[in-house]
Amino acid sequence: MAAIKSPLSESAQKVTGDALQGALVDLVDLSLYAKQAHWNLTGRNFKVVHEHLDEIVDLARQAQDDVAERAVAIGVNPDGRARTIADRTEIPQLEAGYLEDDKAVAAVTDALAQIIARFRERVAATDEPDPITQDLLIGITASLEKQHWMFQAQS
């Protein structure tokens, strides 16, 4: 099969591809992280937090698809394999077992803050090499920041 020809220069493709791959790792792991909390949640605010965690999962899954498709559009192969995500994630993993709602809210708030910081770095890194990717990352960052605010307000 023929490779997809990139509309970007080789150096711009490299910077942009690295930003997109990092975003993909964060988003795939975020969806798994939120689902793990969702499945093991307990506590007085169970229903509200349980449903809110699914919002995070939905956001992360849609965004990871957008990021991966953007990577292919610029001629970069996205890598969302389980081993890649496990090896490259920077999100501290949740403890195994039941998770009290207040601990889940705090953990998700912290994870979102870390991911947002990395997304902001990717937004800055893609300013010159690919403003189209930068626009995609800005939109995802805005959605992540909204969810961060909503989780932070619950603590």
Rank of each mutant, 00 (worst) to 15 (best):
R70F: 00
L94Q: 00
D110L: 08
V57H: 04
D79I: 00
I74A: 05
D87W: 01
T109S: 15
R118I: 06
E69R: 03
D79Y: 03
D58H: 15
L99R: 03
Q62A: 13
A111S: 13
K103Y: 04
V57Q: 13
D66N: 12
E95M: 02
E55Q: 05
A104P: 02
D65M: 09
E100D: 15
T84G: 01
L112T: 05
A117I: 07
V123K: 10
D65N: 07
Q93P: 04
I91Q: 14
E100S: 05
A125V: 11
A86M: 14
A104H: 02
I116G: 02
Y98K: 15
A104N: 01
V123G: 12
E95S: 06
A73K: 02
V123C: 13
L59P: 06
L112E: 00
Q114I: 06
A86V: 15
F119W: 12
V123M: 14
D58M: 15
V67S: 08
E100Y: 13
R122H: 12
D58R: 15
R118N: 11
D87P: 01
I85G: 07
N77H: 10
V108G: 02
P92F: 08
V67A: 11
A96K: 13
R81L: 05
Q114V: 05
T126F: 06
A124S: 08
L112Y: 11
V57K: 15
R118Y: 08
T89V: 10
V72G: 14
G97C: 08
E121Y: 13
Q114M: 07
I85L: 08
I116P: 10
V123S: 15
T109Q: 13
I91D: 11
D102I: 12
E100L: 08
A71K: 06
N77W: 14
I85P: 03
L112F: 11
N77C: 09
R61S: 05
A104R: 05
R122F: 07
A86I: 08
T84V: 06
A104I: 08
Q114D: 07
D79K: 01
P78Y: 14
D58L: 09
D65S: 10
E69V: 03
E90S: 14
R70Y: 03
Y98A: 15
R83H: 05
V57E: 10
A73M: 03
V108D: 00
G80K: 06
A124Q: 14
A82W: 04
I74K: 02
D66H: 10
Q64C: 10
V76E: 10
A104Y: 04
T126K: 06
Q62Y: 07
I91R: 13
A104V: 11
V72L: 13
E100G: 07
F119P: 03
A107Y: 01
R118F: 05
R88L: 12
T84P: 02
V108K: 02
A63W: 05
